[in-house]
Design a protein around this nucleic acid. Structure first.
Length: 267
DNA sequence: ATCAGCACCTGTTGGC
DNA sequence: TGCCAACAGGTGCTGA
């Protein structure tokens, strides 16, 4: 499910709802475990007050006092729901009780989603790269891709380079930049790199304004779908005409992922 | 250093 | 209608 715009939407919605609240209980599913790899036990956050909620890459970061942080990764089908209607939530993986009686529920059909509690810097701990919106990315992009022979789309999906881009927005950004997904990232021209970065930021911003894409399972913290799926130019549109030139959108598999592009508009 | 392939899970969809 | 394969917004591991 969720890429940067979806995760950003959830984090922005949750921040004012959770800020200042205290966690009073944590219940987490075992088998398969939902808490994996944290340096602190989940119970560490019980009794602590939430300072803020933000996004790092595709992680939702809930920050507590003393640098204690909870990182939530939704993977494919995770949903983080604030105070859902009373009664059991289907596919619940974890439930956090709050001091005002509200609850935060992590539900996930496919059980890929993960959480961890740790102390210290989120970006370093989680091993994610630079944010697409970071101003210094413009200056650093050339150096990041220099000599890399991997296809540009595979490179975009690697969270250690740029953090937050997933399959949908990689396809969309490459379309708007006019670049073929298979093009070797190290061979992009200066102009192509600039176009790609501009296209990436534009499509991510626009998707955030539309509260993300709900292609399948994604809903925000209130359980509502996003709207950007209606504006997708290539993702999921195989066999349909390109909106710019009418050529039929093609689907290939690259890095084991469905990849969509216009063979005319993208060179 | 890469990268294809598969693993992790469950649900939905489309073809025969 | 029924069955089965393919596919799904992500990542992490293995072995070539």
């Amino acid at each position: 499910m969720p890429e940067l715009p979806e995760v950003e939407t959830i984090a922005r919605d949750l921040a004012p709802l959770l800020r200042g609240r205290r966690v009073v209980s944590v219940h987490a599913a075992r088998q398969p475990p939902v808490f994996v790899g944290g340096s602190l036990a989940p119970r560490t956050i019980v009794g602590r007050r939430i300072r803020d909620v933000s996004r790092t890459g595709k992680f939702i970061i809930v920050e507590f006092d003393e640098e204690v942080r909870l990182a939530v990764h939704l993977r494919m089908t995770g949903n983080l729901l604030f105070n859902p209607p009373a009664g059991p939530v289907r596919y619940t993986r974890a439930t956090f009780g709050l001091d005002n009686g509200a609850r935060l529920v992590f539900a996930d059909v496919r059980k890929f989603g993960r959480m961890r509690v740790f102390r210290g810097d989120a970006r370093a701990t989680l091993g994610v790269g630079i944010d697409p919106f970071a101003p210094e990315l413009d200056a650093r992009l050339a150096e990041l891709v220099r000599g890399r022979r991997t296809p540009v789309k595979s490179w975009l999906l690697d969270q250690r380079h740029i953090a937050g881009v997933g399959n949908i927005y990689a396809c969309e950004a490459l379309y708007y930049a006019g670049v073929r997904p298979k093009k070797r990232v190290g061979k992009l021209s200066l102009r192509e790199r600039a176009m790609l970065l501009t296209a990436l930021r534009r499509v991510l911003h626009k998707a955030i304004r539309h509260r993300g894409s709900s292609v399948d399972d994604y809903v925000d913290a209130e359980g509502k779908a996003g709207r950007f799926q209606n504006s997708l130019a290539v993702y999921g549109r195989a066999g349909m005409p390109c909106r710019r030139c009418g050529t039929l959108i093609r689907r290939i598999v690259l890095a084991q992922r469905g990849t969509f592009y216009c063979p005319t508009c993208q060179v």
